[in-house]
Every structure is written in C-alpha cells, then in structure tokens.
Design a binder for these strands. Sequence first.
DNA 1: CGGTAATAGTTGATTTTGTAACTAACAAGG
DNA 2: CCTTGTTAGTTACAAAATCAACTATTACCG
Lengths: 145, 145
Amino acid sequence: MSEKDDFALREFLPFLLNQAAEESSLSFQKVYRDRYGMLRTEWRVLFHLGNYGEMTAKEISKRAMIHKTKISRAVQKLSEKRFVSRLRDENDRRSEHLSLTPAGEVAYRDLREVAEDYDRKLSAQFTKEETVLLRKMLSRLAGLE
Amino acid sequence: MSEKDDFALREFLPFLLNQAAEESSLSFQKVYRDRYGMLRTEWRVLFHLGNYGEMTAKEISKRAMIHKTKISRAVQKLSEKRFVSRLRDENDRRSEHLSLTPAGEVAYRDLREVAEDYDRKLSAQFTKEETVLLRKMLSRLAGLE
DNA sequence: CGGTAATAGTTGATTTTGTAACTAACAAGG
DNA sequence: CCTTGTTAGTTACAAAATCAACTATTACCG
C-alpha cells in the first residue's frame, strides 16, 4: 500500500498536532480519571485554580480558552467532589470566586507531580533547545501569545 | 492574581499540544463542514483513502488512531454521500475494502488543496528549519516512527 | 470435524459536548 | 427611576463521542 500522490498526510501539521496531542493526553488522562474520576475539563479547571489561585469562571475561561458552559459543568462536578469551593462576590453578585478546598489542593499537588514527571519524560526525547523551541512554536500555533 | 508556584500549565506539553491542535483544526474544519457537510472523522477517513488508496476500516483505524465505531459511522456517511465505495473481501468476508469514488476523489483533491495552503500558512510563521524540526518532534510524540 | 477463541464491523445505551436561549445582576443614558 | 444593553453563569436540547454488547465470519486446536 504505497502513497498515491505527493501530499503526505503525515506531514500535515494539523494532523500531526492532533495525533501528538491525543497520544500525549492518553496516558495522563488515565491518571486523573482513575484516581479522581475527573474529566479533562475538570482537570484543567483544577489545575488553573491550583496554579494561579482563586479566580472566577470567566477568568479560567479566558486563560484556558475553554467555553464557559464547559467550565460551568466542570465546576459543578468539582464542587460535588468537594475539590472546589464557590464564593459569591458581594460587590458583583453575578460572579463567583472559585478556589480549591484542602482536598482539592491535595489532588492538585498529586496530579501536578504526575504531570511534571510526564512532561519531563516527554521532553527527555529531545534536547533542551529543541523543547524550548517546541513550546514556543506550540504557543504560537495555539494563539497563546 | 499571581502564580502560586512554579508549575506553569502553559508550559505543559500535553496542554500546549491540545490547544495548538484545536486551534489549527478550527479554521480548516469550517471548510469541509461548509463545502461537504463533513464531520472531522469523515474528513480524516476521506484523507486516508485519498492519500494512501484503498484500505479497510481496520487499517484506517490503526493508522489514524481512530476508534472503529467512529470509522464505521463515518464510512456510512461517506458512503451515503457517494464519496466512498465499499467492496467486500471475497477471501475474508468480514472485511471491506474502502476506496474513493470519482466524486470522493474530487472532494479529496479540493480539500487537499485547501489543506496544503493552510499548512503553508501555518508553516510560514517559522523558519524552514524550525518547521522541519517541529514536524519531526510531533511525529515522535505521536508515536509515528 | 466441533467447539472455543479471535477478528471485522455494527448497533444501542450512556456520557459528554456544542449551540442557543435563558436568568439574574449590574451599567449607563435619558 | 426606567429603558436598553451588557455581563456571569446556567440550563435545555441537539449533536457527537464513548463503551459495551452484538452479529457474522474466520482461525485455531484438541
């Protein structure tokens, strides 16, 4: 089964990005799913709160580029799991300040360690300069700068 | 709102990969959706058949790392649209050989062109050496080598 | 052979996501 | 104040993905 023409799907950036993203998510996903029954969005929200501290859903949405409905549902789940506490802003009663509970902190620290190990493992395939460049290029492609 | 510690989510490779993948899929998705009413999986199947020629669902599944139920449904849709023809293998009547119809070829060539343009546009953000390296790194991360 | 296991692909039930419309709270101009 | 517009977050309904169970066919092995 040889290629029919000169367009190489395996060179197509969106394809490569998707494959790499999927592959790199898989093994990590298993951890937060099995250990804490979390979905990807929940994990991301947890990480944002753990990483940047208290913030509102809106802020997470903006930072993580996740749609507000996903955030809303993730926060509900995380709140049910007692990982996140919600505090209504008394000056602007539309918004809520979200933060990690002690249990949420524990989960965050645990998962962060796994994440760091995993990131190191991925990066170890390349030279230091290469991974620096990779991150920079991905940031650009992701529209994060 | 300052960072609480030194782990940066925005540096975490799986996060960056996902964001970059999502972002890069978005604008392209619009094309195959609007022009041919295709879903992402359908597009991928079409591209695999166009790019590598006739193969079975199983082979596509393996190559593209797409689950067989997704493939099954995508093939149904593509077959309804008369983009893909299905031919049962007479030696092993469980499997089907899938290939593009002439109409499928036309759609494939059209979309491939858009894809190539888009890829060039993405690549243009970086130097030639950088994109070569990027592709290589993504291939490695995707487990394609 | 005959029975069990394996494989290709499909289908159905359950989750999860996406889109749009909605509620509640605030803002600003007249 | 009152209307109109905006914003934070939720909810409802449709679309899609996931997971498990299923059919049909072939392979393996005593």
